[in-house]
């Protein structure tokens, strides 16, 4: 066999299995999902394969009355908008919290940097469900926070902290903060502290230095962090399920619901496809923007 042929054979033998696994059990199912989103609904939980219909997409905006007429329905749109809004809020809060932390980490010496990176990374590897559950303990009517506030006499009745958008935002921020801190840290860490000194030397005070030198240089990390927080927040399932208490649903829960009690697979598939597109669009915008940034400072 020729050398080139041998190379190709090795390539197929080595890369093939993993590629095949992901293709068959992820890419093909995603394609199937797109297909099913245009099929008819089987009320017992399944698909009418030979019926083409855009009913699932119509359902996003309209409600079919008993007599078959369509009426505008904002319920699903509200959930989608809430998902986007909560994810955006999560992203902004994470940025506000994460930026100073990343900056603190980046200005430590080597030994402390390693320790701090480890401490930031650690919670990511612990169970997401358990971490969200911990917030139930804190936010409940008789939870740690309310108990503490009552004991201190600051409030006389428990605050309604759980089962609302606030709780979901807290939980989402809690879940995805490391994704904001780490990329910003990585880009800040590369900035030579001499640049900051040069800025001071050229009469820029601390605020001006942050605005003119540090933020522009950390920009790629900030954008990466925002994407890495926004995308998983948008598709969150556990946090709204546990902390939203069935009242503050997000897209993820709506999708899950179609495969449980609602038994509407085509609609679930359509929502899944919609979420997938939303995510891929965010990633594509990011890739385009980031590449633009790379060209500006090669």
């Amino acid at each position: 066999m020729s050398r080139a042929g041998k190379n190709t054979l090795y390539r197929i033998l080595l890369i093939g299995p993993a590629l095949l696994a992901i293709t068959i059990f992820m890419i093909v199912p995603l394609g199937l999902m797109a297909y099913i989103s245009f099929r008819g609904r089987d009320y017992s939980g399944g698909v009418v394969w030979d019926q083409f219909t855009a009913e699932a997409y119509v359902r996003l905006f309209f409600e079919r009355e008993l007599d078959g007429t369509l009426a505008l329905n904002f319920n699903y749109m509200a959930i989608i908008l809430r998902s986007v809004w909560l994810s955006f809020l999560t992203m902004v809060i994470s940025l506000a919290v994460g930026l100073p932390v990343a900056m603190f980490m980046a200005t430590r010496d080597r030994k402390w940097k390693a320790v701090l990176v480890f401490m930031v990374t650690l919670p990511f590897w612990t169970n997401l469900l358990v971490r969200n559950y911990a917030w139930i303990l804190l936010l409940r009517d008789h939870g740690t926070i309310n108990s503490a506030l009552l004991w201190l006499g600051i409030i006389s009745e428990p605050l309604p902290l759980l089962h609302n958008a606030f709780a979901v935002a807290v939980g989402l921020t809690y879940s995805f903060l490391p994704f904001m801190v780490l990329p910003i840290y990585a880009s800040l860490e590369k900035i030579d502290l001499k640049l900051v000194e040069a800025s001071f030397d050229l009469y820029a005070n601390r605020w001006q230095t942050i605005k003119r030198i540090i933020l522009p240089l950390a920009y790629p990390g900030i954008v990466a962090g925002c994407v890495l927080v926004f995308v998983p927040a948008l598709g969150a399932y556990i946090t709204p399920e546990l902390l939203g208490g069935g009242k503050t649903l997000m897209i993820g829960n709506l999708i899950g619901f179609q495969f449980g009690a609602a038994r509407n697979w085509p609609f679930g598939a359509a929502l899944g496809l919609f979420l997938l597109m939303l995510v891929l669009t965010s990633l594509w915008l990011y890739a385009r923007r980031y590449r633009g940034e790379m060209e500006r400072s090669p």
Partner: peptide, 11 residues
């Protein structure tokens, strides 16, 4: 987001 491939694979 995990929910999407999860339900796709379910189907």
């Amino acid at each position: 987001p995990e929910i999407v491939p999860a339900v796709a694979t379910l189907m």
